[in-house]
């Protein structure tokens, strides 16, 4: 997925001269294609995430769309206030890109587990979260963000995620993107990010014969919480899947959306528990 992201970024940068990539001294064997093709639009800010985000905001204030790339918690928690004040408040076109969502870097330890990042990034009212489930969703999300420049958080898996969709889907904030449709389904599974693969696998292996629909939501955030009522109303039960803690996560976001709209749909959630990360590897 990382490679699809960089490939798409290169393609888009070909047409859009305002695309800038800043990395926080990370991205070995990923970002080189961009750096090679656009040497004057590629910067390594060094191991200095606060400055990286400030720089990104400053460049975006001059019309650039800046992608600030790092891994796990470094471009989010380490510089959360720079994102809050400089990027989100000023409504600037900065996309923070974090590789290694969830436990993708599991054996690197807790420092590299991005399991609270949704909780942080969905606090920002102007910010859109992109958590693609496969390389095609990654391309779709990237195109969407370039067409709708805004503060955004792009959560990538690592490498090796296979394509689920047959082609690049069209995506929109809060949209449920259908992966499996079964006739007469009264319940649905809804995943965000690379949990799509686990959801799909568990859907195929499930022992209940009841029909069930499967969706992924690659784009969501504070600004589209009020768009969920119609989708929720189609099902008696929805199960969310995410590689993130329950608190502040995607399932919590959907619960808030359901509660705000008075939806009677029952929501169950699959999520990571702290004991799966603290003191443990994946």
């Amino acid at each position: 997925m990382r490679d699809a992201f960089i490939d798409e970024l290169c393609r888009q940068a070909e047409q859009r001269s305002n695309v800038i990539l800043i990395v926080g001294d990370l991205g070995y064997s990923v970002v080189e294609p961009f750096a090679a093709r656009f040497p004057d639009r590629f910067f390594n800010a060094g191991v200095a995430e606060q400055n990286m985000l400030g720089l990104a905001a400053g460049m975006a204030s001059e019309g650039c769309h800046v992608f600030a790339y790092s891994i796990a918690n470094f471009p989010t928690f380490r510089c959360a206030e720079q994102f809050r004040n400089d990027v989100d408040y000023h409504q600037l076109a900065v996309t923070v890109v974090a590789v290694g969502g969830g436990l993708a870097y599991g054996n690197l330890g807790y420092s590299h587990h991005a399991v609270q990042d949704f909780g942080l990034m969905r606090l920002f009212p102007q910010t859109l979260i992109a958590a693609p489930g496969d390389p095609l969703e990654a391309r779709a999300c990237l195109r969407y963000l370039l067409d709708h420049p805004q503060p955004s958080y792009f959560r990538l898996g690592k490498a090796g995620e296979v394509a689920v969709h047959p082609e690049v889907p069209s995506v929109a904030p809060g949209q449920w993107l259908q992966v499996v449709a079964e006739r007469g389904a009264a319940s649905a599974r809804l995943s965000t990010g690379t949990m799509l693969h686990r959801t799909l696998a568990s859907h195929r292996e499930r022992d209940t014969p009841l029909p069930e629909d499967l969706f992924t939501m690659p784009l969501w955030g504070a600004g589209c919480k009020d768009s969920q009522a119609a989708q929720l109303a189609r099902y008696g039960c929805v199960e969310t899947w995410e590689d993130h803690y329950l608190d502040g996560g995607f399932g919590s976001w959907l619960r808030e959306a359901a509660a705000l709209s008075g939806s009677p749909t029952r929501i169950r959630s699959r999520f990571l528990r702290p004991d799966q990360t603290l003191g443990h590897t994946a």
């Binding site: 800038i20 606060q50 720089l55 905001a57 400053g58 204030s61 001059e62 004040n85 400089d86």
Partner: peptide, 25 residues
């Protein structure tokens, strides 16, 4: 006013980003 501040330590990185963008252009 170009930029809202209030939390100290934000101005110089932002200014550097502006300078970099202007120079790039």
């Amino acid at each position: 006013v170009e930029f809202s501040t209030g939390s100290l330590g934000h101005g110089l990185p932002f200014a550097a980003g502006k300078a970099l963008a202007l120079w790039t252009r």
